[in-house]
Each structure stands twice: as C-alpha cells, then as structure tokens.
Amino acid sequence: MKRTQPAQSTHPARTGHTHTGFERLPVVDISGLYDASLGQRMATARELDRAAREAGFFYVTGHQVTRAQQSALIAQAQAFFAGPVEWKMRYYIDHSIGTSMAHRGYVPEGEEVFAGGKRDRKEAFDTGRDLPADDPDVLAGTPMLGPNIWPDQPGFREAVDQYYAAAFALGRTLFRGFSLALGLPETHFERYLTKPPSQLRLIHYPFDASAEDRPGIGAHTDYECFTILMPTAPGLEVMNGEGRWIDAPPIDNAFVVNIGDMLEVWTGGTYVATSHRVRKVAEERYSFPLFFACDYGTVVAPLEPFATTEAVQRYAPVAAGDHLFAQTAQSFTYLKQRLERGELVLPEGSKALASFGQQARYADADASD
C-alpha cells in the first residue's frame, strides 16, 4: 500500500513535552513505522517525539536489523582488536585513501580527545559509506567521504557492509518517523540523504581496573542528526535534564538512539543533543555507533514550526558537513597536528567542542550570571 502524507493538523510535536529529569531511558517499539497504516505510523511517531523531547536518548525495539548481522559484526570486531598493535597500525586512520580526509581506519588508544582534554581509553575502527576513489565528491576533496580501509581479515568487510546497510536502512526509517513527529511530509529528510558522511565506528573499551571515574571525562554530544548504537556491556551514562548522570545499560536486541547536534538545530532546541559519556566498567566492552548524518552540504537551521525569535538567535544556520569535520578535527590527534602544521584549516564559523546539549546550556547560563 502506498504511504500517504499526514495532514498538518496531525502535528504530534505540539504536545508540549520538555527535556526532563528522567531516571531511565524510555523504550519505543518502532515496528509501527513499518506498518502500511498511516495511523499506526503516526502513533509510533508520537512515541518517538515524546522520547526525543523528554530524554533525547531512548531504546528502540521492533527494528529489522537481524541478530545474525549484529553477531557477525561483534565477532569481526573482537577478532580485529585482539590482533597485535603493530598489525592494527597498518590501518591507522591517518592512512586514509586519497586526500586522507576520508577519516577511515584504525584509531589507537589516546588518539581521540574530547572537550575535557583527557585522552580517551579506547580503540576504534572507523568506516562509512564505501565510495570509490573516483567519486566526484571524493576527487573534490570533500572531508569525511571516501573509500573505506579494509584490514586483511577474512569476513571483516562483508560483516561491516551488511551491518552498515541494515543500520542505515533503520536510520532512514527513524527519519521518516521524526518527519511525522515534526509535522512534516514523511519523506521530508530524504532529500538530504543522497550521500551522507554517516560513520559506523567499531569501538573497543578494554577493562582497566585503574581507570579514574571523574564527572565529565569523555562527555560529549554527537555531531550528526542522531546515533544508532549497539553496545555489548554497561558503561554508557546519559545526562538528564537536571544535569544528573543516568545509567543506560544494554537491552537485548534493542538499539540505543540519541539526538545529535543537527536535529537540535532543526528543531530549535526542542529536541536536545543529550550529553553522554562512557565511564569505568567492570568488563571489556564493545560499542557500535552509526552516526546518522545528512549530506555534507546541507545547511541546517530551525524548521518553520520551531523558528521562534529565541531559536533563531541561538541557532544560526550551520553547514552540517563543516560542523562534523570541524568537531572531528578538534577531537583527533592526527588532525589537530595537521591543523597546527597549517595543512588543514577549520571551516569559517566553526564551533568549539561541546557547543550543543545540556553542557552548552549550562555554560551559557553560567556566562550570563
């Protein structure tokens, strides 16, 4: 059955929900988004809207990413990170193909530094949409776009490709739900998803009994529209609307979804890019976030229903790709070194790290006191 578009009177975003002092993350069954009935999709969109407003972080069940796809990715990540450091460094992220701005490959411990200035105790392998080296945008040197680096490990590429495709399809479905929630045509955001720099990260947190557990270490928001996360163990903490850290442990066959900077801008702060961190945990942990982005050249500003005077003043139009690149360049050591050597320049108007989410709001409030 063809999906019809909702009338503007069905706008579920006018329900008045606000970011709250939640104690646990809400759970949203999104199976209704796959239903042929517009009424069922709208009902699910209302649940998404409530979770995005009240928490900015929530679990989703009822998705169509198979357990086999999840298990294959986990197994390949475990095998890769178990390899010797010398072998993993053959795929170091600074070796990205072409202009070296594709930002793909192995991220060793200590490479990534968040706004607090402390090196993060984790290693990762970064991938994305696997574009050919002769793609026009790659040839033009567009950051965050390009070919993946593939390690010499049987089954790795296949597992990553299959999981990426399934998780990206889930992201498209969620965006249709957000469109309905915001009173927009169901396919409103599709125009911005032709070639987005959506990254899939394979992250390994080794157990570290001596790890310090200080407030704010590693705390950040995500730079894209939203994130679809598959974690294997506890450790994730989310800041609620009162500034308190709330545990977000894994739920079987559920993804953790959180609002990112671009949806905060599009909604004029109605949806908050919720700050989060990973703290010391009692076991080894793997984490697989897909950072769902819009096309690099998309200019994001508050949508008409949310373009109040206050929102327009707070959220100047931002180029989505430039924001992603600027935040990334300020977080990774190899890119910061290039900035220092003058090989790279941040886009004009780039924001500092931690410019969105609750931490930014508290900083603004402190500055005005």
Rank of each mutant, 00 (worst) to 15 (best):
R338F: 00
A319L: 10
L202R: 03
I246W: 01
V318K: 10
F58E: 08
T232R: 14
D364V: 04
Y163H: 15
F58R: 03
I97A: 14
Q78C: 00
V65P: 05
A52I: 04
L290I: 07
T270F: 00
A133K: 05
L73A: 04
Y362W: 15
G297F: 12
Y271Q: 09
V281T: 10
P108S: 05
E237W: 00
G216K: 06
E284W: 03
H19W: 15
P151S: 00
R53I: 03
E348Y: 01
S275N: 15
A282K: 12
K336F: 02
R285Y: 13
T227D: 08
G117I: 06
E54S: 15
I251N: 00
A367E: 10
Q69A: 14
A167N: 05
A140I: 08
Y362C: 06
S179W: 01
L236K: 07
P108K: 04
R361E: 15
Q359A: 13
V65C: 05
E348T: 10
R277Y: 10
P302S: 08
Q5S: 10
Q153A: 15
A159W: 02
R361H: 07
R157V: 06
G98M: 05
F325K: 09
E310K: 10
N148T: 11
E111P: 02
T267I: 07
I149D: 02
A7H: 11
A301G: 09
G171P: 08
D137M: 09
A124F: 05
L303G: 00
Q69W: 06
Y334G: 02
L290Q: 04
E283W: 02
D322H: 14
G260P: 05
A102E: 13
Q70A: 14
F292E: 01
G268S: 09
A363W: 09
L193P: 00
P231I: 10
A124T: 01
S210W: 02
M89K: 13
G183N: 10
V238S: 01
T194M: 06
C294T: 13
A319W: 04
A273R: 06
A165L: 11
A211N: 01
Y334S: 05
T61Y: 03
L139E: 08
E237P: 02
D222I: 01
Y106R: 13
F114S: 09
I246N: 07
S37I: 02
M239N: 07
T298K: 08
S210L: 07
Q76C: 06
D247S: 14
N148Y: 06
G269D: 10
T10K: 06
A133R: 03
A248P: 00
R201S: 08
S350P: 10
L38A: 12
A102N: 06
S9V: 13
A181P: 08
E54Y: 08
V138H: 00
E54F: 03
A45W: 03
V312H: 00
G177H: 11
E242T: 14
V28F: 09
A36C: 07
L131S: 11
